[in-house]
Design a protein around this nucleic acid. Structure first.
Length: 159
DNA sequence: GCCAACGTTGGC
DNA sequence: GCCAACGTTGGC
């Protein structure tokens, strides 16, 4: 089996938070609504069962990594994309020819204390992280193993 | 609410 | 295929 990969997924907590994920039956959800090709490609082509996901709250106060999830179902079409009633409806996507894809993730842990973006910026080992790049907007992005490990270490330090 | 940094769209 | 206009993201 290939080694697990590491990712970061953004969400605005006002629309879907890690607490919402915790409240789900089986603490699992489908990651619908991604409408960016690069982010889609990561989900569609590269995310595999067992991969680890840093759960990030954007547009939050403060913006922060709030926990860890794991991929439990690999890429399948995002049905909300051809639902006319849905906020993320895309007329160019159909059930016959889906344009957008998603994965399922399951909650693994909620950090006792979220790791604010500002704190992450001050960590030397995270200098190269995509999240910290100026102008970075990708909502699904790869994370290096070393970065992932560093983030987890930071949560332990806080206790 | 502002606005910089992007991504997408569509006229040509 | 260029690029201006427009829409979105997301920190602040």
């Amino acid at each position: 089996m290939a080694a697990a990969k590491y990712w970061l997924m953004k969400t605005e907590p006002t629309s879907y938070s890690i607490q919402d994920l915790a409240a789900e039956k089986k603490q699992t959800t489908f990651w619908d609504g991604v409408r960016n090709y690069q982010a889609r490609n990561y989900m569609r082509d590269e995310m595999k069962i067992g991969d680890k996901v840093l759960f990030y709250h954007s547009n939050a106060n403060p913006p922060a990594i709030t926990g860890v999830a794991t991929v439990v179902r690999e890429s399948y079409p995002d049905h909300t994309s051809w639902d006319r009633e849905h906020k993320h409806y895309d007329p160019k996507s159909t059930a016959q020819s889906p344009r957008w894809f998603m994965v399922d993730i399951k909650l693994e842990q909620i950090f006792d204390e979220p790791l604010p973006l500002d704190d992450l910026r001050s960590v030397a080992a995270l200098k190269g992280m995509e999240l910290l790049r100026k102008g970075s907007r990708l909502s699904v992005q790869p994370v290096r193993k070393a970065e992932f490990d560093t983030v987890l270490k930071l949560t332990k330090k806080k206790r």
